[in-house]
Simulated scan of single mutants.
Amino acid sequence: MSNHPFTSPEQWEKLKTGIVQLAKQEILTRFEKITAEVKQDGSLLTEADIEMQKKTKAFLFENWPEFSFLGEESNQEEQIKALQSNNGCWVLDPVDGTSNFASGIPVFTVSLALVVQGCVVMGLVYDPSRDEMFAARKGMGSELNAKQFKAQTPKQTLKQCIGLIDFKRLPEELAIKIIKDNPYASQRSIGSVALDWCWVAYGRGQLYCHGAQNIWDYAAGYLILNEAGGMSCTLDGKDVYVNIVEKRSAVAATTPELFKQWQNYLTKN
């Protein structure tokens, strides 16, 4: 396991408690009270995004100054430089699901990961609306509100499953295929990549497919799914996590058996 402070129970609790407090203070207090502006890439930005990133960065540097910081709202040059740090790098999405947040839909999270030597060693995803903290440390399993869990579901075939599918970012041909075939029992798109990963890990949805997500969207959830025993890869069968700032596709499932069926379906002509 990589050397980092969060193998210590005291440091682990300090981190989780700090993020919960900041999310309640900087995000929940602004919910349904503010408007959003449109960023250059077409995504939304709110005061909650800006303040949560600023306050979280200060909290992390105050307590763990050895790590660099990559936030969604940082500029790309800063993001790339931070990820190249030899000591380790925080990866933060201050509000994952900003469109939901700005629309008054209570499905959004804070996603925070720690990357050391190109490997995600810690991840937490906090859902303030439900007061749920999904978290994982490499080699130490996954937890929901401090209770360990394993990725499991009684569902054994695709036709029994709920699929969490983001059609907008999929290749057109694949999106049409899925819509036409309807290979699952039901489909959702909840609007938060970090929660997608956590809910599949927990079995709330059993299948997942997304065409293009950023490192701050998926890093924490990726570790949480892996540590719970779920499986994932890109649409072309590679590891989802890469230690660079680029958009990645993701295919995932709660169990190895469902993952094999899901991957076979998606890659079959």
Results as ranks from 00 to 15, higher is better:
residue 96 D to C: 11
residue 66 E to C: 04
residue 70 L to S: 12
residue 88 G to A: 13
residue 96 D to K: 10
residue 99 S to N: 14
residue 102 A to M: 00
residue 94 P to Q: 11
residue 53 Q to I: 14
residue 89 C to P: 05
residue 77 E to A: 05
residue 97 G to R: 04
residue 90 W to H: 02
residue 98 T to L: 10
residue 99 S to T: 11
residue 99 S to Q: 15
residue 65 P to V: 13
residue 70 L to T: 11
residue 74 S to F: 04
residue 80 I to M: 02
residue 86 N to C: 00
residue 63 N to E: 06
residue 66 E to Y: 05
residue 60 L to H: 03
residue 84 Q to G: 11
residue 61 F to D: 01
residue 89 C to D: 02
residue 85 S to T: 03
residue 84 Q to L: 09
residue 86 N to L: 02
residue 63 N to M: 10
residue 57 K to E: 11
residue 101 F to Y: 14
residue 96 D to N: 03
residue 71 G to H: 14
residue 83 L to T: 09
residue 65 P to D: 15
residue 67 F to M: 11
residue 101 F to K: 11
residue 72 E to T: 03
residue 65 P to T: 15
residue 52 M to E: 02
residue 85 S to M: 08
residue 95 V to S: 05
residue 77 E to V: 08
residue 74 S to A: 08
residue 102 A to I: 05
residue 60 L to M: 14
residue 77 E to H: 06
residue 84 Q to D: 07
residue 62 E to F: 01
residue 92 L to T: 13
residue 69 F to T: 09
residue 57 K to G: 07
residue 81 K to N: 13
residue 78 E to V: 12
residue 59 F to T: 06
residue 79 Q to I: 09
residue 56 T to N: 12
residue 100 N to P: 05
residue 55 K to R: 13
residue 73 E to V: 04
residue 101 F to G: 14
residue 53 Q to Y: 10
residue 72 E to Q: 06
residue 51 E to H: 06
